[in-house]
Design a protein around this nucleic acid. Structure first.
Length: 561
RNA sequence: UGGGGCGUAGCCAAGCGGUAAGGCAGCGGGUUUUGGUCCCGCCAUCCCAGGUUCGAAUCCUGGCGCCCCAGCCA
């Protein structure tokens, strides 16, 4: 059975894959070619991740190929910096375009020749109307437009004018080349769309070779045709453009006939992906930069510790349809946890330390205990953790006056210290203000390793760190950037910023093994969440980002009251 | 009084005339040296109204609701 058959039998099913499958089966296409066409004017984000997974994923599944194409038709907005970052991000997500890094700008000459072809056929003309006049002549959603007074210029005059446009004889905005279609069309895209505008701007790749640049509508489909793209997948807002896309393909001597198919874009709750708004967050210093771990950019999510396979799985599970959607951010988090649960090595880290002294434990004794690195993965092995008389435990793991369902430590209660011993709380030390500053406990030497020979049960297991061996660390806890499911729904999106989106914890006490944490390594701080080392870390002073918290049913129980 | 889409559970989403998959969330229970993981169970009659049919989420008609389009942006 070939890969192709396999895709047909067992591959994911959605309306696009159904179309591709049918096109292959009926011989309308010999193979599958797609493309991911970002405009190099910003960083890739979660929304792009969906498109990337679909474009590259479908090509891969059907044994085809996917080109990475920079849609660089507007030199006033594009920068070289983005051409590099886009490639890094697509690669990080897990896709490869081989040697097929393409640029719409590579087709400028061909596109120009085809424009002359349209002029010769009487299907395009140079219009001297100003931008404002063109808008006025275009009509409205409910009223037809009017023909431009320049619409019926003779072919020769159009040709001459267009060539002079290219030579740079005219000022920006003074003339455009338009397709001659139908000013009365109900579809506004067909009311003589602009093909070329004059822009005396230098292009990141073509420099000053051109002063006229093709518009998206004119360039996109023809670029697809040149590359032999069979299925040009894009988002719903381009659905209205498809008749125009098809018109160019039908009226130009292009080498192939690509087909555009639209799907709905990804919307995730408590998140924004608008380039303008993301930029505003960066510019106003509301986040630390494009790679702030709270940002929905691929760079941000990478720094946050989201595994690329979790993102791919998320896109796969969310599906491909044409319906408007708002995916709960919890779904994304679930995908992240699923991958990290299998991969992350466990460690003990006390984020909010409370000193615990074991009164009956020998003053200078230090024991080395063995801890499992990952109960989900035998191969991850074990590590050694030092234990001694003075420890730190999590403040939240002690309550002086606990409610019935609180299983953790409280006066008189006995709990297990993970991998170590059972301890019983025998006393509480407080400062003048009445705050608990230290716990006094006794331990049961017979419970070494965490099991009691007499079968005694304990209702909680706490993580801990030996005070003398602890490594100090900074830990950054993140929540969604916005507290509203749809930021800005009430007008101002900045008003919806979540004041608790970042919480910096200093003076955290982590086990010695964490001093060796490596960038990019997935970690689980037991009972708390998944974490990763941040590049801000210094020698001997690690900084950890919380990727996502562990599911917390106790927190839910507490919330119920 | 324009054109193009979409409407199945709290959120996604299968379903393509034969009697509503699955995931996330939620709820209940079991296992557990992470209140994690894992396991089990519960959780919808398909926007509305007519019609066709033995039989409709699926077909037809008419409504209603929501989204997109008037850049020389993509």
């Amino acid at each position: 059975m070939s890969d192709l058959d396999l895709a047909g039998e067992e591959g994911a099913r959605d309306f696009i894959r159904d179309i591709v499958r049918a096109d292959l089966r009926d011989g309308r296409v010999g193979g599958v070619v797609t493309r991911f066409p970002p405009e190099p004017n910003g960083y890739l984000h979660l929304g792009h991740a969906k498109a990337i997974c679909i474009d590259f994923g479908i090509a891969e599944e059907f044994g085809g190929r996917c080109n990475l194409r920079m849609d660089d038709t507007n030199p006033t907005k594009e920068e070289h910096e983005y051409i590099d970052s886009i490639q890094q991000d697509v690669r990080w997500l897990g896709f490869d375009w081989g040697d097929r890094l393409c640029y719409a700008s590579d087709y400028f000459e061909q596109l120009y020749e085809w424009a002359e072809h349209l002029i010769r056929e009487g299907k395009a003309y140079v219009d001297d109307l100003s931008a404002d006049e063109i808008r006025e002549y275009r009509g409205t959603l409910t009223e037809p437009g009017r023909n431009s007074p320049f619409r019926d210029r003779p072919v020769e005059e159009n040709l001459e004018l267009f060539r002079r446009m290219r030579k740079g004889e005219f000022a920006d905005g003074s003339r455009v080349l338009r397709a001659r279609i139908d000013m009365a069309s109900g579809n506004i895209n067909l009311r003589d769309p602009v093909l070329y505008r004059i822009l005396h701007a230098s292009h990141p790749r073509t420099g000053d070779a051109w002063c006229i640049y093709p518009t998206y509508d004119y360039a996109h489909g023809q670029s697809d045709a040149i590359e032999g793209v069979t299925h040009s997948l894009c988002t719903l807002e381009f659905e209205d453009h498809r008749p125009l896309y098809d018109w160019f393909i039908a009226n130009l001597p292009v080498p192939s006939r690509p087909r555009q198919i639209e799907f709905s874009r990804l919307n995730v709750s408590h998140t924004i992906v608008s380039k303008r708004r993301l930029l505003q967050l960066v510019r106003e210093g509301l986040v630390s930069g494009w790679d702030d771990p709270r940002m929905p950019t691929l760079r941000g999510m990478r720094r946050r510790g989201f595994p690329p396979e979790a993102l791919r799985d998320f896109v796969r599970r969310v599906g491909v349809t044409k319906s408007e959607n708002l995916i709960e951010v919890a779904y994304l988090e679930a995908c992240v946890r699923e991958v990290l649960n299998k991969r992350a090595e466990r460690r003990m880290a006390v984020l909010n330390p409370l000193k615990l002294v074991i009164e009956n434990y020998p003053e200078d004794q230090v024991e080395t205990l063995t801890a499992v690195n990952n109960p989900e993965d035998e191969g991850a092995g074990t590590r050694e953790v030092p234990f001694s008389r003075v420890l730190y435990i999590e403040r939240d793991d002690f309550m002086e006056d606990p409610p019935k369902k609180f299983f953790r430590l409280s006066p008189g209660a006995e709990v297990r210290l993970r991998y170590a011993y059972f301890v019983k709380c025998t006393g509480v030390v407080k400062d003048a203000a009445g705050n608990v500053t230290e716990l006094r406990c006794t331990y049961d030497p017979a419970t070494r390793g965490g099991d009691s020979p007499d079968g005694r049960k304990v209702k909680a297991t706490l993580h801990w760190v030996s005070a003398a061996h602890a490594v100090d660390a900074e830990v950054r806890l993140y929540e969604t950037l916005f507290r509203n499911p749809v930021p800005g729904a009430g007008g101002d999106f900045l008003a919806d910023l979540n004041p608790d989106s970042l919480k910096v914890l200093e003076g955290c006490k982590v086990e010695p093994a964490l001093a060796e944490a490596k960038l990019g390594q997935a970690l689980q701080f037991e009972r708390q969440g998944y974490f990763c080392l941040d590049p801000d870390s210094g020698p001997g002073r690690p900084v950890f980002n919380r990727t996502v918290a562990l599911r917390d049913t106790w927190a839910k129980e507490k919330a119920k009251g």
